[in-house]
Design a protein around this nucleic acid. Structure first.
Lengths: 247, 247
DNA sequence: GGACGCTGTTGCGCGCAGCGCAACCTGGTT
DNA sequence: AACCAGGTTGCGCTGCGCGCAACAGCGTCC
């Protein structure tokens, strides 16, 4: 693991939350101003970061080109996106596709309703394992050793009154997910957000993806989202077929 | 300038041209297999790279999230994109927006026709200064010292029979650009591609952006593209107004 | 106009992080 | 069974990246 590369990635993550001055970057990363300058200049040379006229650093346009290339290389991308978009139109909720990538579960695609209120979930960001529907839908269908590895060292931080706060509670919930075939986030991360998720089978029946519906509880409770379970499962099965799964 | 960060960026650039094994990455970068592994693992942890089941490395989904954030931070992005899209519909050609960012001219946006043949120009990639219309449209309207700095150390590589191959030739062409108000790429990089470009004025009248029309010469010669000069100039002026330019 | 504070920049000495290497493991091929 | 190629690991060494001090520039205050 390269320390400097990790720092550079941390700079990108920091700037993804908003632009900032060199000193602000140094403070946030806990490094010297000259170290921050060196990192920012290295990223600027590659076009991943740019410096505005206001002396603040912004994410750079090369990221758009790299993302386009990443999307091209994501063999599931365009095919799955069509199903996600159809599901979004049919349900009105925000739709996510999550995947287990390199021992981390991340959001890999998202289709949002054209509304002013956007749910915050950044593509590529890791999913919170003990609260998110996506992660429970994936974890529930892993071999116990794989699940143990993914959960090694996990901190069961309480966010709301309904957050699961131990491995035992999560295991019990994962057993329920296996029983009923879908996972929920019952306001476990944000008290005003609910979610249901189902696993997506791969060509060999294994699970490394999941699809979810997320909505403000003021618009639709988790119970209301469950009324869309048929559509959600159909979308997941359609994506699974793109992956070569044969029921 | 951080050597390790530069190497990590080089890994991303390499993978943007196609996935590759760890050994292929090591060979392409001229480093040891264990060095390549370290770089790839660091990038994987941040989600910028992922390892496929086929042991090859691909660009990772976090790039999509970072690119979305970069697009949000590009204050000109959405507004300019509308004008680029309208120009593309009106002319049928590929439209580029280029910008001078941190002493480098890069493609920052592109709108392509919905055709199977796509011109290769990656967003965020630096522009070839002595061949591209975009770069000539920007260089022509810089202070001589700024142009000299941008061109310092530039190698005037010949790509086709029409490539400009010296600073003197380029300077003469830039004078012509200033005279007629637009730049051309007269098959100077690829013999089968032509392009015209015009500068975009900033709020203070300075030039740090340009817009271009690019087309296969089999579909439209440079002379044919010039028939769209009015539309191209209108689009550039519309974008300039978004930047606060007052004619 | 001078003092002050903050931010950005530069050059440098030093300690350690990142390097390549050797050895090993795994899987595929002969 | 032997061989090869690619991937992985641990380690010694050195080149690099670190923080520091000093400086420059700018804005604010008196």
């Amino acid at each position: 693991m390269s320390h400097s590369v990790a720092r550079a990635v941390a700079v990108l993550e920091l700037l993804s939350t908003g632009p900032g001055t060199q000193s602000a970057v140094a403070a946030a990363l806990g490094v010297h101003r000259s170290t921050a300058l060196r990192l920012l200049e290295s990223l600027s040379e590659g076009g991943l970061v740019r410096r505005g006229d206001d002396q603040r650093y912004y994410l750079g346009s090369r990221l758009n080109g790299l993302a386009a290339a990443a999307a091209d290389q994501f063999e599931l991308g365009a095919a799955a996106h069509r199903h996600l978009a159809a599901l979004q139109r049919a349900t009105g909720a925000t739709v996510h596709l999550g995947a287990l990538e390199n021992r981390v579960i991340r959001y890999v695609d998202k289709v949002e309703p054209a509304r002013s209120v956007r749910l915050y979930s950044q593509i590529g960001a890791p999913v919170i394992l003990h609260t998110a529907g996506i992660s429970k839908a994936i974890l529930a269908f892993q071999h116990p050793e794989v699940a143990a590895e993914l959960l090694a060292g996990h901190v069961y931080e309480r966010f709301t009154a309904t957050t699961l706060t131990s491995r035992a509670e999560l295991d019990a919930e994962l057993a329920r997910v296996r029983g009923r075939g879908f996972a929920v986030d019952d306001s476990e991360h944000e008290s005003f957000i609910g979610c249901i998720a189902v696993p997506v089978r791969g060509h060999d029946g294994s699970v490394s993806c999941a699809v979810s519906l997320t909505e403000l509880t003021a618009r639709a409770t988790v119970a209301a989202l469950e009324s869309h379970l048929g559509r959600l499962t159909e979308a997941a099965d359609a994506i699974a077929k793109e992956l070569g799964w044969k029921p």
